[in-house]
């Protein structure tokens, strides 16, 4: 069987590949994959979906002790579902025990790839882990809302996503670092194009053009004096099917300027 470590390479928007890297959470995930591999006597496969520059992250993983590295070639930014599908397809045929992911990438995306990946490869999932204990079982501590914790026994096959502080990536030995520079990285073709919205915007309502005020001067003054109560919209209770409800919510968000 094989332990898989998923790494997300990012190049800063204002600099080139020399300044790129992976997140501390991804480094932790790689360390857990290596520890799991050692404990279970399994190979470790490092995988990334990204441009050629991401080979650097894979070489670092090989230097640290991973046996195999695959890069799904993808230049464009992809949706998390597409990334998960690309990873699942690349490791199709690999007998996976555990998949280790960081719970965030350097660009602080949605962190949803591990969940989609678990669904894709029909594995269990334990996400947002703040502690992992490797004994006869894999025991993971998960952060819940309101300061609560959930302790899980995670049996293989499973996807784990870990926070950055759970483990420090080991230092690659010199022999590994030297060998990794010329090691083979398997490159497979990735999904083309992007379904992402072309523009990224902050998560807050956009300024929008309001219609000119209606009514006479007196009405407008009254409206202002009423503290906005006169113009405030009230919630409208509706009863809809889930699909219709989703549509209605999207329409409302759009109307409020979130789109």
């Amino acid at each position: 069987m094989t332990v898989v470590a998923c790494l997300k390479w990012l190049t800063p928007h204002d600099a080139d590949d020399r300044f790129g890297g992976i997140s501390p959470a991804d480094s932790s995930a790689l360390e857990w994959a290596l520890r799991l591999g050692e404990q279970r006597g399994e190979d470790v496969l490092a995988i990334t979906v990204g441009p050629a520059a991401a080979d650097t992250a894979l070489r670092d993983a090989l230097a640290c002790g991973a046996q195999r590295a695959i890069r799904v070639d993808a230049v464009d930014e992809l949706l998390s579902t597409d990334v998960a599908a690309a990873i699942a397809s690349a490791i199709d045929g690999v007998d996976v025990s555990y998949v280790c992911c960081g719970d965030y990438s350097l660009d602080r995306g949605t962190g949803s790839v591990p969940a989609f990946l678990a669904a894709q490869i029909e594995a269990r999932q334990a996400l947002g882990l703040i502690e992992v204990v490797l004994g006869s079982d894999v025991i993971a501590l998960r952060r819940l809302d309101g300061g609560r914790r959930e302790r899980l026994r995670v049996d293989a096959p499973a996807v784990l996503s870990v926070e950055g502080a759970t483990a420090t990536l080991r230092r690659a030995p010199l022999s590994g670092a030297l060998a990794a520079r010329n090691a083979t990285i398997e490159v497979v073709a990735g999904p083309v194009g992007s379904h992402l919205p072309t523009a990224r915007r902050p998560y807050r309502p956009r300024a929008r053009v309001l219609p000119p005020p209606k009514g006479g001067t007196l009405e407008r003054v009254q409206s202002l004096l009423s503290g906005g109560a006169a113009t405030k919209s009230h919630g409208v209770p509706v009863e809809l099917s889930p699909d219709e409800a989703a549509e209605r919510i999207l329409a409302a968000l759009d109307e409020w300027g979130y789109a």
């Binding site: 230092r171 690659a172 030995p173 010199l174 022999s175 670092a177």
Partner: peptide
């Protein structure tokens, strides 16, 4: 000697 494990060359 380097700062890596098994780091002599």
């Amino acid at each position: 000697r380097t700062d890596r494990p098994d780091g002599d060359l």
